[in-house]
Each structure stands twice: as structure tokens, then as C-alpha cells.
Write a protein that binds this DNA or RNA. Structure first.
Lengths: 195, 195, 195, 195
DNA sequence: CATGAATGAGCGTTCATTCAT
DNA sequence: TATGAATGAACGCTCATTCAT
């Protein structure tokens, strides 16, 4: 529903119709629309967490886990096209700061779990240590996000899976520990700290 | 306006008030709200294009140009926090397919210009050629996008500038042509089965 | 409940919560909301009648009984601030004529009992007879009613007790039988044309 | 409208229909429903004040002015049966304290003007001075208020005009300055200050 | 060109009421 | 008898849009 019509399709009437109810009946299950969206965010977070848990069980190699996670992430988005539309929608990403912080927390938590894999990899010596796990986790998210957007606006025409894997190839190569790139890798950019 | 209140703040009343008019008067300038948003998208595209043009004038080195472009992109978003909220809002990214394709075109055009730099770099031999310019351009967008989201949901607390530069550091290193990593870099991922 | 939130607080949900039930369970005890309000009105009437009965037992002097009744009336309102809000609420005083007549009857009955005291006083010769007991009973009600309203809108700041006693002082003096004011007292107003 | 259906009839739909508009069109003229009621209260206050001003012009005798005012008050209520239903409705008299204070002020202002007549009469020596003008003004209101309620619940069957004039007869006699009732008149009631 | 008035569709929400269990 | 789920009507309100002036 959200994947079709966007968050504007997430009105009580549409939701109710979808679940075979009448709008007012939704108030049996949620306090109000905000409650509905909160529940939705929780569901989404649980899906993300489930992916992390799953890949943990699939392998002990944290770098491989990340690759598997990326693939699962892509699949999650492909199969639930509504997810990014919810997370980045006005309703949640938008004005009301309380909800914005809710999304902030969700992202931080997910990224925290992703960062954990990087940390483990660094401790195992397979990933360079001049980048913090947090920074790496944000980059990880960047491997798929623009691709997901393109996939959406192209009505599925863009090959998000392939793009994500290409990006992972570049990224994983780049962060792998190697004796030759250690020294100058930290030179992220010609300075200009401005924030 | 959009940066404060989200796209819901982009109602004709608010816009009209902003420009010292009355809502109905806007219909002298735009056919309807869709027309307004189209104009907005055009404005945004012009800003993006302006950045491309600017960095073209600032340097002849396409890789350096990309770095400068990234920095400009970050600045553009930081100074016009409303831009991502418009581009990825429901109103444009959302339901009406016509508008979605409009955004698709905008992104493709921008990415096309970005890809141009990569193509030039590849022709100049400074960037590996096992990745297509198009793929590279999408990755390029991924260097900043998740950071921008975090910056927004953290109310400016996240250091998007620093993150983007770090990401560029990793990325630019990874794509630079080097004799040792050329051959196997194309090995994007250990498995390529679509899931 | 009603005293806090007004008749809008008198919704089935609130009532049910108050008595530890669920809204639908109330339908085991009342046919519908109207039935509830009817029961409420009956309860209120019983309170009013109880006051009349009580003062009857407290004294044989009908004029003193009225003074005591007035004091009880004030106390009843002060301790059950919801009563006037129910009696004069829209739900009962309002639209549905059936309910309006129900309130009409309640008031007539109460005023009838008040009038009885006046009739007895007149028969005992202590109250002038140029005013009918019915008229006197309505005046009696007027001794407290505006004060009660002021008490409510001033959040208890207005001294309804004192005002009622002052008014009773004036009123009781005025209606007491005296040789000098008997004859011309009936001259209600200098002109009787209806406007 | 309010006189027919009570404050529940004062919904935007009904009001709009009454003035030949559509509900949303009312928002051109009032900020919201609260604004509507505020405007209504102002209108009512202006009517009450107009009565005061009118009787001031009709006579210089403050006691006669009060009698005329009472008659005008009755007429106002008879011709605008909705007035008491608005002033004493839940919507205004009810929960929201801000509005309650608004009504409080309205009543205080009106009663203040009424008290002025009593004060003048006392200064002219025609009204006993052991009762404060404020107290007298509240009693004055009591001359008509219960009658008005009976008139309403009896669907106009009760003769509010006659009752008010009778009550005025009793009241005006009682408060007039006389040498015989001066001393004991202050004995409002056998004590019991309790508030 | 700009305005004020008005419109109609839609939305979130409340609430009395019904009904199967 | 009591409950939870559901309903339908109504309400206050917002907003894009139209139109006469």
C-alpha cells in the first residue's frame, strides 16, 4: 500500500480498507495514526534486526556477514518497497521532532549493529583501522541507498542488486587490510574541516 | 520552508504567504500545485547542474572535479536542507508516476553528468575501467546520501562533511587505477546469484 | 466526572471506566445513553426530594424549613457540582423534547414541594397571600441559581453560601406578612403591558 | 438554531447551512469553532450592554431603569431563546477553563453595570444600604433566571414575563429604603458563614 | 494581475451502539 | 452478565482549487 501510493496512501481509510475494516475500527488497535506509524517503525526495525541476527548465524566471518547483510538488505527493500518510503517519509522523517528522533534512533541502532561487524573485522585484522566502525557503517549504507532510490523511481527498472554488489566489491576491496595502502589511506581529503 | 516543516509545509497558503501573495494569486504563476513542484524540481536541477558547471571551470582534472563536486553537493544540501526533502518526498517521489519519472530523469541527468567525469578519468587512465561510469556515478551519490539523512535526523548533529570526505577518501582510492588491483577488482562479490 | 469535564465527560466510555466496566457492558444496565441520563435525573430528583423530606423532619415551621432547604440546596450543589451541569445541559435541557419535558416535570415536582411550604406558611398566616405559592417557589429558586452559576464560572471563588443567605434575608423579609405592606404589594410593576 | 437544537445544533455544518455556506467556508470568517463561540459571546454581551445603555437613556431614575432593564432582559431571552443555552452550555460554561473565565468576565461585567444602578439608588437614598450593590445585582439576575428556564422547558408555556414582574415587585419593595425595616434587614440569616 | 469568498474532497478522530463469544 | 471487536454517523478542520470582482 505504502509502496503504491506513498505515505499519502497511508491514511486511515486506506489502511482500514486494506485490512477489511472501517477507519474507526483501527482505533481498537492503535491509539491514533502516530501509534500506527510507530508500530510500523518498530516492525521495520525488527526486520532490520532480524537480518543482522540471521547473517550472524550464517557465518562467523564478519566481512562475509556484511556482504550477506547487504544482500538481505537489498532483498528486504525489493520485497517491501514501502520501507524506505516510510522511513524517509514526511510523516516520520518530517517535522515532528519526536518522530524524527525515533528514526534517528532506529538508524543509529541499525548502524551500530553494522559497525559491530566492522569492529570485529578490524580486531581480526581483516579491515583497515584508520576508519572508525561508525564511519564504515555509514558508508555501508551508502552502498545500497542511492541504488534503491533509482530502483524505485525507475519502477524496478534499475538493477539494485547488481549495483549493490558492484559497490560492495569496490568498498570491500578498499577497506581490506593491505600493507601497501595503510599509510596514505587516512588522507581522506585535502583537509577542510568545516562542520 | 520545506526544510522546517517538510513537504506538508509546502502548501499553497504557506508558499503564498512567503512570497507576499494570497493563495489564489499563485495560480497566475503556476497552473496548479503540480506545476509549482515541477518548477521547484527544475530549480533544484539547475542548482545541481550549476555545481557541475562550476567544478568544470575550477579544474581540468576530472577526479579532482568529482571531489569538488562532492563538497559542493554537501554544501548545497547543508544550506538547502529542503532539497532532499523535496526530491525524496511523497509528492514527487511518491504516487503519481508522471512525477516519479520526472525525478527519475532528474537523477539520471545529474548522474549522467557525474558519470561523464568518471568516463574522462577512465579515458585519462586514472580510474579503473572494470566499472562502468554509470555504476561509479551511483556509488558517488552513495558517498553522501546516507550521511545527509543522518545529518537531518540528528538535527545537524552528524558531521556530514567529514563523513563525505572520509567516504571519498576510501572510494577514490579504490577506483584509482593501480597495477596491483586492476585484474581482480572486477570480482565484485564472491557469489553473484540474484536473490 | 460531570463536574470536571461537563456533560462531554459523560460518555459511555468514561462512565464505564468509572464503574470498572467496559462501555458495552453498560447496556446490560441501561437501554441506552438516554436511559442512563434518565436514571441520573431520577437520582438527582431523589436527592432534591430527600432534602425536602429532611427539612420536614427538622422543623414544623414551614418558613424555617425553606431556609433550611435553601441551605441544603446550596450544599447539594456545592458538593455535587455536576448537578446543575446535568440538569441544564444540552443533553437534557436541550434538543429532544421528550427529555425536556422530563426536566420540566422534575422541576415542577420540586417546585411543587417548595410551594407546599409557602402554602402552609400562608395558611399559618406568616406569609403574605397576594403571591401564589407557585410564584413564590420560582422566586425561591432564583435565590440561589445565579449565585450557583457565578460560583461555577469563578471556579468556586464566588461565595454562593453567603449570597444565598443574603438573598434569603431579603426575600423572607419581603414575603412575611406585615400589616403595612399587604395591600399594595400585589402591584407587581407600574405597567403590565407585555412587550 | 441554538434555540432549537441546543449547542449540539451549533456544529459547523448546521451553522454553515444556516448562513447558506459550506462548513469549510466558515473558516474565512472565524479561526475555528472556538472563535465562533467567542464571537457569539461578544454578540451576546453587546446585546446585554445595549439594554443597559438603552434604559439609561430612557430614564434617570436608577430603580426604574432596573425595572426597565429586567423587562428588556426578559424580552431579549424570549426573542433569543438561544442566549441562555449558549451562555450556560457545556461548550462555554463547560470544561475549558479559558472559556469559562470568558463567561465569568461577561457575567461580571454585566452584573457590574447592574450594580451601578443599585449604587446610584443607594446614593440617592432610595435603596437600603445594608446590601452591597454586587449582592443586589446577583439577586436581580435571580429574578428572571429560573423563570427563563421554566419558560424554556415548558416550551414557552410558562409566563416568564409575569413571573419576572411579580418577582421584581417583591424584590423592589424589599430593597426600598424604609424607616421601619432598616435595623433588622441586615440580619440576612442566622449566621453560618461556611464557604 | 491580485484578492476574498467560497467550494468540495478528504482526513483524523470520537462515540453511541451492536453483536458474537 | 461481561467483553472485545467492529460499525456508522458525525464532527472539526485543512487544503487545493475556482471564480467574480
Amino acid at each position: 500500500m505504502v509502496s503504491d501510493k506513498g505515505m499519502k496512501g497511508l491514511n486511515l481509510g486506506a489502511v482500514a480498507r486494506r485490512v477489511g475494516l472501517v477507519p474507526s475500527a483501527l482505533y481498537r488497535h492503535f491509539q491514533n495514526k502516530d501509534g500506527m506509524i510507530d508500530a510500523l517503525l518498530e516492525l521495520i526495525e525488527s526486520r532490520l534486526v532480524a537480518n543482522v541476527v540471521a547473517v550472524r548465524q550464517e557465518t562467523d566471518d564478519p566481512l562475509l556477514a556484511l556482504e550477506l547483510l547487504l544482500r538481505r538488505h537489498v532483498r528486504l527493500i525489493r520485497e517491501n518497497a514501502g520501507i524506505p518510503r516510510i522511513v524517509f517519509s514526511e510523516e516520520v522523517y518530517g517535522a515532528k521532532s519526536q518522530r524524527k528522533y525515533r528514526v534517528h534512533d532506529l538508524l543509529r541502532r541499525y548502524l551500530g549493529r553494522v559497525a559491530e561487524f566492522f569492529r570485529e573485522s578490524q580486531q581480526a585484522g581483516t579491515v583497515r583501522t584508520d576508519l572508525s566502525p561508525d564511519e564504515l557503517s555509514v558508508m555501508f549504507l551508502g552502498l545500497v541507498q542511492p541504488a534503491a532510490i533509482l530502483w524505485h523511481v525507475s519502477d524496478g527498472g534499475f538493477d539494485v542488486t547488481r549495483q549493490a554488489e558492484k559497490a560492495w566489491g569496490v568498498f570491500s576491496e578498499a577497506i581490506k587490510n593491505g600493507e601497501d595502502k595503510g599509510p596514505e589511506a587516512g588522507r581522506a581529503s585535502p583537509a577542510t574541516r568545516e562542520n
